[in-house]
Computed example of a mutant assay.
Amino acid sequence: MAQTIFRRDYCLAACATALSLALTACAVNKQLIPTGGSRADGIVRMSYEYGGFENPKVDLQQGLSSAQQRCGAWGYSGAEPFGGGTRACTSFYQGTCNAWRVTVEYQCTGTPPASR
């Protein structure tokens, strides 16, 4: 009898541990990629997406470098982050969002290109 109780308690503890590990968000590296912007306004939008069980780790320096390259191609001398990012749900199921897109805007800096 005591052996049966021990096995049941052990099984419950093992199952609870496995469940908590399964529900823990996994750290995932994400890169900001260009998703929009305006050459005339000197704005570059960079985004990344992640799922409900992901804990995104974003290299903001990589995003800034990509935005600076885009601004440079437009004739500006640099870029800087423009405020905070925005998060929007991209996949909604049974009342719960299970995927998001985060977008960060960058303002191109320096002398704007001449109007054409």
Rank of each mutant, 00 (worst) to 15 (best):
T96G: 13
T24K: 15
A40W: 01
R101T: 04
T103Q: 00
G72C: 09
A99F: 09
S91A: 13
I33E: 15
Q69D: 05
T109W: 02
R70F: 03
A79D: 14
W74S: 05
C108L: 13
A88S: 03
E80N: 05
A25K: 15
R8D: 01
Q31R: 04
Y76N: 11
N29L: 10
Q68P: 00
M1I: 03
A99G: 03
V102S: 08
A2I: 09
G37S: 10
L23R: 02
N98H: 13
A79G: 11
C11M: 06
F6R: 04
R45L: 06
G63A: 04
L23H: 09
A88T: 10
W100E: 07
V104Y: 02
S115Y: 08
Y106A: 06
A27F: 14
D59H: 04
Y50N: 08
L32C: 10
G37W: 01
C15Q: 12
L32Y: 15
T86I: 14
A73E: 12
T90F: 09
L64F: 07
A27R: 13
Y10F: 11
C89S: 01
A25T: 13
S115I: 11
E105H: 05
G63T: 12
I43H: 12
V58K: 01
G51T: 10
R45E: 14
R101V: 12
A79E: 08
Q62A: 12
G83A: 00
W100Q: 06
A73C: 00
G51E: 14
P113K: 01
G78V: 06
Q31F: 12
Y48F: 15
G110P: 09
Y76R: 07
R101M: 10
L19D: 14
E105F: 03
Q62D: 15
A73K: 02
L19S: 11
G95K: 09
D59K: 09
R7K: 06
A79M: 03
G72Y: 07
Q94F: 13
F53S: 13
S115R: 10
G36W: 04
S38W: 07
G37H: 10
L32E: 00
T17E: 15
S65T: 12
F82K: 11
L32G: 03
G95L: 03
A40Y: 06
F92H: 07
A79R: 06
Y48H: 07
P81L: 08
C97S: 08
F53W: 15
G36L: 08
P113C: 09
T103M: 00
T24S: 15
C26S: 10
F82C: 11
G84C: 07
A13E: 00
T4H: 08
Y10C: 01
T17V: 13
Y106T: 00
G78A: 13
G72A: 05
R45F: 01
T109N: 09
G52M: 03
G78C: 10
C15E: 05
V102P: 00
G72L: 11
G51Q: 06
Y48M: 05
Q3M: 04
T35C: 04
A2E: 06
S66F: 01
R101E: 14
G72I: 15
V58P: 09
R8L: 13
A73D: 13
V28N: 06
S77T: 08
I5G: 03
C108P: 01
